[in-house]
Simulated scan of single mutants.
Amino acid sequence: MKVWSGVKSILNRAPFTVKFYIGFILFGFFLMGFVSLHAYIKRPEQIQKLTVYEQKLVGISAYKVSEEHFATGRNGQIYIFKNTYEGITLETVKDILSEEHITWREVKKRHLIGYDLDDKIEIEIIRDINTKAIIVILEKDR
């Protein structure tokens, strides 16, 4: 109780601008905490939707060389699956993933970007020139 009364007496003597800045900083911390909590709660849903797309690629799992899963963005709000395949073509991966309602855009002959509007999942398929590997990046927006 003595601590609170000391803080209260200091705030009573402080000018309005100092009180305003302190309030603004506290509001910022509260907002950042809320965004972090929201990202933490939504992460299992994001992973589940990405796993559905990854399961469609099970037929070519024999060609899988590496697999990465990581979160990025502010407070880890965007979750990404990155799989690398060797010995398979870009069109084969596109055909497997095209079973869903995906709109495709060709950036280059070796780079395709698809977007599923229902689940808000971005799919990026890249053919590496040096290694001839196919890199599939599945990214779930908030």
Rank of each mutant, 00 (worst) to 15 (best):
97 L>Y: 03
42 K>Q: 14
81 F>N: 06
60 I>R: 06
11 L>D: 11
42 K>T: 11
121 I>E: 03
89 T>W: 02
123 I>N: 06
55 Q>K: 12
5 S>W: 06
80 I>F: 00
83 N>W: 00
34 F>E: 02
132 K>G: 06
42 K>A: 11
82 K>R: 13
47 I>W: 01
9 S>K: 15
90 L>C: 11
133 A>V: 01
53 Y>P: 02
56 K>G: 08
28 G>L: 15
65 V>K: 12
24 F>N: 05
52 V>H: 12
116 D>K: 08
131 T>P: 09
72 T>E: 12
105 R>G: 10
73 G>A: 04
23 G>V: 12
133 A>T: 07
73 G>Q: 03
79 Y>V: 03
52 V>K: 12
92 T>E: 12
48 Q>T: 05
77 Q>S: 12
92 T>A: 04
21 Y>W: 09
134 I>Y: 00
3 V>R: 13
42 K>Y: 04
1 M>K: 10
43 R>N: 07
130 N>I: 13
40 Y>T: 12
34 F>Q: 12
96 I>A: 03
71 A>N: 03
88 I>H: 03
131 T>H: 09
13 R>C: 07
121 I>G: 03
115 Y>C: 09
10 I>Y: 15
21 Y>V: 14
36 S>E: 14
7 V>D: 06
55 Q>D: 15
51 T>W: 01
75 N>V: 11
108 K>Q: 07
99 E>I: 07
137 I>T: 15
55 Q>N: 15
117 L>V: 13
100 E>Y: 08
90 L>W: 05
133 A>I: 01
9 S>H: 10
112 L>P: 00
117 L>S: 14
49 K>R: 10
141 D>Q: 11
132 K>C: 02
120 K>M: 05
48 Q>A: 14
14 A>N: 07
83 N>H: 13
67 E>N: 10
78 I>D: 00
13 R>F: 06
138 L>K: 09
113 I>L: 07
26 L>C: 14
19 K>Q: 05
24 F>R: 00
135 I>V: 14
103 T>R: 08
46 Q>N: 13
64 K>I: 06
44 P>T: 05
83 N>E: 14
49 K>C: 01
80 I>W: 00
22 I>C: 11
92 T>K: 07
63 Y>D: 03
4 W>L: 13
113 I>V: 15
67 E>F: 08
66 S>F: 04
125 I>K: 00
63 Y>A: 15
73 G>P: 01
63 Y>V: 00
25 I>L: 15
137 I>E: 14
72 T>H: 02
22 I>P: 05
79 Y>S: 05
132 K>A: 08
19 K>V: 10
8 K>L: 14
102 I>L: 05
81 F>H: 10
142 R>C: 06
29 F>T: 08
111 H>Y: 15
124 E>Y: 01
101 H>F: 11
116 D>R: 07
37 L>C: 08
73 G>S: 09
64 K>N: 05
21 Y>P: 00
89 T>A: 07
93 V>R: 01
108 K>F: 09
129 I>K: 15
